Computed example of a mutant assay.
Amino acid sequence: MTDYRAHFDATIAFVNGGSLEATGFRLDLPSKDVEEADVARLLVEHLGLALVGGVEFHSLAIVEEPHRGSRGVVSEHSESSARSRIVDLSHTVRAGLVTYPGLPEPVITPHLTREASRARYAPGTEFAMDVITMIGNTGTYLDSPFHRYAEGGDLASLRLETLVGLPAEVFHLTDALQRGIPSSVFFDRDLAGAAVLLHTGWDRHFGTPAYASGAPYLTEDGARHLVDAGVALVGIDSLNIDDTEAGGERPAHTLLLAAGIHVVEHLTALGEVPARGARFTAVPPKVEGFGTFPVRAFAELS
């Protein structure tokens, strides 16, 4: 199924005076078969406006384009594709993988080869046992408070209910004109208890030199808003949730982890997850005295 959006310029007039001008506005549509009046109604619902006297469109085009999460729109695509589907949101960990430039790559070595195991087991029975040496910041991983704070909770302390089946609020930001994701992006949604997933599209560079610079990130005021909103987890498909090119400060990590909000970095395939309605899971192993570890992150579309 295909998603559709309306692109338009418009004037919104109010019955008690005043007006709003919308220029280059984009709005999710339930289908391509909508009238101008339907678009006007959806615009008013999306903006949460009251006492609207009328909407006048100066230009209006309906285009094929993935939804971004406009309020009041449940697309045919979302309803039909959300039946018992799981989307893998994790990068594959392999020997030599470069996740974050400057950090060590995973090394996989055999502890017991299949050939050597044949001498230990019955004929026809063989096993392989391998050792992987890697930093916790490998592939798609989760940061616990211990990653940032010596007295913060480690991986073993995390409650499963804060990691499994969280309502996913996905913000599709691939057409954003700035690197920093501000608090205003989140104003139109109730995010309490949710996994907020930031789809920037930067995962297209994962494993290449381009991934290391110019990456999108969550601003300090954006992180503060999410803390105040009471979210459970924040994930991003980018190099880091903070701006690593602005010096050594890490305000997003600092604020989120201090509030006990999990951080998942280096997600992928978020474009396959609708803005609302999915469930998100990302569970690391239960390791004491450890702050960060790879997860198998996924979304359930049902």
Rank of each mutant, 00 (worst) to 15 (best):
L198A: 03
L218M: 11
A229G: 06
L239E: 13
R224G: 07
G207E: 12
F187W: 06
L226D: 07
H225Y: 15
T200D: 10
I236W: 00
A229T: 04
F187Q: 12
D228K: 09
A232D: 11
L233D: 02
S213Q: 14
R204V: 14
V231D: 00
L197S: 01
L233A: 03
P216M: 01
H199Q: 12
L191K: 01
N240L: 01
A229H: 03
V234S: 02
I241G: 07
N240K: 08
T208Q: 13
D237G: 08
F206T: 04
A232M: 14
V231G: 00
W202N: 01
G207T: 07
V234G: 00
E220T: 11
G235I: 01
I241P: 09
P216F: 04
D188G: 13
S238V: 08
L239V: 09
G214A: 08
D221P: 13
D190W: 02
A192I: 10
V196Y: 04
R224H: 02
S213A: 11
L218G: 07
T200W: 06
F187H: 13
L226G: 00
Y217Q: 05
H205P: 10
L239N: 04
R224T: 07
H199Y: 12
G207Q: 01
H205D: 10
F187I: 08
F187D: 08
D237L: 14
W202H: 14
W202T: 01
A195S: 04
D190I: 15
A194Y: 04
D228S: 10
R189P: 04
P209S: 06
V234P: 03
A210P: 06
P209V: 07
V227P: 08
R204T: 07
L198C: 03
G207N: 02
G201A: 03
I236M: 02
H205Y: 14
S238D: 15
S238W: 13
A229M: 05
T208S: 13
E220C: 09
E220H: 13
V196G: 02
D190H: 08
T219E: 15
L233E: 05
L197W: 06
L191I: 09
L198H: 09
V231N: 00
E220Y: 01
S238N: 09
A223K: 00
S213F: 12
N240G: 15
F187R: 12
D190S: 11
F187T: 11
A192P: 14
P209Q: 02
Y217E: 01
A212V: 05
A215S: 15
A215I: 04
Y211P: 06
W202Q: 07
A212W: 03
S213R: 15
F187G: 09
D190P: 04
T200L: 05
E220V: 10
D188M: 10
F206A: 06
S238I: 05
A229W: 10
Y211Q: 04
V234M: 04
A212S: 15
V196K: 01
L198D: 05
A194H: 14
A212H: 12
V227E: 11
R189M: 05
A194N: 00
S238Y: 12
S238G: 12
V227K: 07
A232V: 11
H225T: 06
D237V: 03
W202C: 02
A195R: 06
T208I: 08
G235C: 10
